[in-house]
Computed example of a mutant assay.
Amino acid sequence: MTRTTGRRAPARRRYARPLLLCAVLTTTVGACATEGARSAPPAATASHVPARDPGPDSTDSRDPARVPATKAAPVRVSVPSLGIDSELMRLGLNPDGTVEVPPPDKGMTAGWYTGNARPGEPGAAVIIGHNDTRFGRAVFHDLKGIRKGAAVDVRDSRGGSVRFTVTGTETVDKDAFPTEKVYGATRERTLRLITCDGAFDAAGHPVDNLIVYAVAR
């Protein structure tokens, strides 16, 4: 459970589900828009993200929740079977309590949500990446091709690496995001990869999210 601070929690309904909202910004290119996730994880896991002193491992000045210098931060994620290999920026909460997503001009860079576990520690580590942005294909464009048993490697700032094995995938309607399943507490060392997926609605937004579930072996 994340340590709480004196910050007042937003209304519970704002924490119903985290979404990556997507938009078609041209007539031919779909884009995951950085309008911010509509909601953060449940209060039991990350409704408060404590402020921490920045350490030498910091890789993203936008991060409102710093990893202590005594902890190695995740800095890279790769999915060898799909040719995915990306640096990791840090993602926290927006001022309105919604979950950050990478900015569109960094579409080829995935982000680690600092309010949950570090990859390799007990708990659910969450990595978010775009499918497409207005600049074109993004880091998780091919994630829908991942298969059960595939390897996902996460490297930290000290050269350590954790290998996760994919246990399954789930495509969900963005209005029915399984918040507790994705962000909830677990004693296992798990990883979730999240991106946009599905058909486009009348406004040009993909209607689904793709979630990849993996566990450290």
Rank of each mutant, 00 (worst) to 15 (best):
M1S: 08
M1A: 08
T2D: 07
R8N: 06
A9G: 10
P10E: 05
P10V: 09
A11W: 08
R13C: 04
R13E: 04
R13N: 07
R14P: 06
L21N: 11
T28D: 08
V29T: 15
G30N: 15
A31Y: 08
C32V: 14
T34C: 12
E35I: 10
G36S: 12
G36W: 12
A37L: 07
A37N: 05
R38P: 09
S39D: 13
S39Q: 14
S39H: 13
S47C: 12
V49G: 00
A51L: 11
R52G: 15
R52F: 08
D53Q: 07
S58F: 11
S58G: 10
T59K: 09
D60T: 09
D63S: 08
D63F: 03
P68D: 00
T70M: 01
K71N: 11
A73F: 07
V75S: 12
V75I: 15
V79Q: 11
P80D: 01
S81G: 02
L82Y: 13
L88Y: 10
M89S: 13
M89L: 15
R90S: 15
L91Q: 10
L91F: 08
G92N: 02
P95C: 00
P95R: 05
P95G: 04
T109H: 04
T109V: 14
T114S: 13
T114C: 13
G115D: 03
G115R: 03
G115V: 05
N116D: 03
V126W: 01
V126R: 01
I127V: 13
N131V: 14
N131A: 12
T133M: 06
F135V: 13
F135T: 14
A138P: 12
H141I: 12
R147Y: 02
R147Q: 12
G149H: 09
A150G: 01
A151Q: 14
R155T: 14
R155C: 09
D156F: 05
D156K: 11
V162P: 07
F164Y: 11
T165D: 04
V166K: 02
G168P: 05
T171V: 12
V172Y: 00
K174D: 06
D175P: 04
V182E: 04
G184W: 04
T186P: 00
R187T: 06
E188M: 07
E188L: 10
R189W: 03
R192N: 15
L193Y: 06
I194C: 00
T195M: 07
T195S: 10
T195N: 10
G198W: 10
A202P: 06
A202G: 09
A203M: 14
A203F: 13
A203W: 12
N209Q: 08
L210F: 10
I211M: 12
V212H: 06
Y213F: 09
Y213G: 02
A214T: 07
A216H: 06
A216G: 03
